[in-house]
Amino acid sequence: MSVKHSLLALLYEKPRHGYELKTGFEELVQGMWPLNAGQVYTTLDRLERDLLVESPGHDKKDRKLYTITQAGKEELWAWLEKPVGRSLFKDEFYFKFLCASHVTYENRQSMIRNQKETMLKDILHLTHLRKQMVLSDNKTMKMLIEGALLHLEADIKWLDMIAD
């Protein structure tokens, strides 16, 4: 997850000060990823240093405001358009399974069962979150959750497939 680009996206929408960026980020991700104030200000310093954002001054409460520059907008577009490669094969559980097979680990079935339990918990959590997004009519977040649920469904099918 790129904090840098999410801050650029928030500043593309409107000028904001540091605290507004923190709350804006949390709203964007529905509180799913924590972001501390330190991370926000460190990232803003770097963005300002790289001329991707600039400050037009302070607001009435003397809080430093930030706006996105043209270079910042171009950086944001470039990032949005760049495809994301996924190394699904390098999954931690795949690797565990590989090692367990290599050493003919006796408890392989319980290992698979525990993994499935963990995934089912994730499904429950995401299903509940999905319901909340439906009720608040957050279509984008609903689509993301749907994507995650489809991945989990496929993972569970695979676990059933490898279980003896």
Binding site: R113, K116, E117, T118, L120, K121, L124, H125
Partner: peptide, 11 residues
């Protein structure tokens, strides 16, 4: 233990 309960049953 909501999720654990269900996961155990469904698993």
């Amino acid at each position: 233990d909501y999720a654990k309960f269900l996961a155990r049953f469904m698993a």
